[in-house]
């Protein structure tokens, strides 16, 4: 009995999620104690709604990092496809529902993702270089060819979708209210689908396999090129969806204000225990890490930290978080290499 408990504990302690969950809880409790506002219903709803866009981006970034790649192009990709979609719908004076916007954006996202996938999957170029290049290309197409400007009016369907809410949380103390956006459903659906795919399909396990060893994956019979290509197409679609959600929720299409998000998103994914070298990590951890970043960005103000300090905290969080896990890895290796011969001594 005791051994099974210690075994479970040891297994848990080897995983990253419990630690990140602990840190997250500590932070939440700290904010709660200092402000008494953190666990209020409206704040929780605010955080949930702030998680939608980064959460979607993080899911895409997670898949790419698991496969052993890295993607810095998703903000540019999302900006381009959502800007093109919005502009197109405005130009044709579209009055229908949001579904068409989502469909067009998904299609565009798939095409742009295929662009990444072509060079990374089929030409086997390094993902960092390709996505750096493609992010530049996407930006160029958006700002040059489409001559993008801030669109303060968005199609009515998108507007309605952005303002509609599942429910409204009201804080009995402060009287502040927060809307739970319908967009969260899109996030949850994608989260569930990707979770299912990564865990219960051969395609998803193939992504893990490629991240572990591309040669082994190839020899085992995974179509490495196709898997990568399709994955980047999916990531493009998820990023585009995030773009649509963002435009709907903000009620305007700003071509450049998503650019630069890539660093914090990747940081969140890695904080959640996803190995930057690929192959290891869970979607749960990835979401916890992203949530941590979102809370630091949104809730520090509750304990009187001025917003101008939030980058300092994000930076420290990244350094300490990755530092601890890097230390763990090197420590584990040392322990392991010291232990192996010792076992023989006993035997």
């Amino acid at each position: 009995m005791k051994t099974t408990i210690t075994n479970t504990l040891r297994k848990l302690s080897r995983r990253n999620e419990p630690y990140i969950f602990l840190v997250l809880m500590l932070l939440c409790v700290l904010i709660e104690i200092r402000s008494g506002q953190f666990f209020s219903s409206n704040n929780l709803v605010d955080i949930a709604s702030a998680l939608v866009v980064p959460g979607l981006f993080a899911i895409g970034a997670f898949m790419v990092i698991i496969s052993g790649g890295i993607d810095v192009s998703f903000p540019a990709l999302a900006s381009l496809s959502v800007y093109a979609t919005t502009k197109f719908l405005l130009d044709m004076n579209y009055q229908g529902g949001v579904w068409l916007a989502i469909l067009i954006a998904l299609a565009l996202g798939a095409i742009l993702g295929a662009f990444n996938g072509l060079f990374i999957g089929y030409f086997r170029l390094p993902a960092l270089i390709v996505t750096l290049g493609s992010s530049s290309v996407f930006k160029g197409v958006m700002q040059g060819a489409l001559n993008s400007k801030q669109l303060t009016i968005i199609p009515i369907g998108m507007k309605d979708f952005g303002t509609s809410s599942l429910f409204i949380a009201r804080n009995p103390v402060s009287g502040l209210t927060s809307r739970m956006p319908v967009a969260i459903i899109a996030f949850l659906v994608v989260l569930f689908l990707v979770y299912f795919m990564m865990r219960y399909t051969m395609f998803g396990r193939g992504i893990y396999g490629i991240g572990g060893s591309e040669t082994s994956a190839h020899r085992a019979g995974f179509g490495v090129r196709n898997t990568k290509f399709i994955m980047y197409v999916m990531v493009g679609m998820i990023a585009s969806l995030a773009g649509v959600m963002r435009v709907c929720m903000m009620q305007q299409a700003h071509p450049t204000n998503m650019l630069g998000m890539e660093m914090n998103i990747i940081a969140g994914v890695v904080l959640g225990g996803t190995a930057i070298t690929g192959g290891r990590g869970t979607l749960l951890g990835c979401m916890l890490g992203t949530l941590l970043i979102v809370i630091v960005e949104n809730s520090l103000i509750l304990i009187g930290v001025p917003t101008s300090w939030k980058s300092v905290f994000t930076g420290l969080l990244i350094i300490i978080g990755t530092g601890v896990s890097a230390y763990q890895v090197s420590h584990m290796n040392r322990v392991r290499s010291a232990k192996t011969p010792a076992k023989e001594v006993v035997a």
């Binding site: 660093m263 070298t277 905290f313 990244i318 350094i319 990755t322 530092g323 230390y327």
Partner: peptide, 22 residues
């Protein structure tokens, strides 16, 4: 500390920018 350079410098970049903002 053996932090992968991409993460270490991303974090410190954020930290320096944060100090600038602060």
């Amino acid at each position: 500390f053996h932090i992968p350079p991409i993460l270490a410098t991303m974090g410190s970049g954020e930290l320096f920018t944060g100090l600038c903002l602060a």
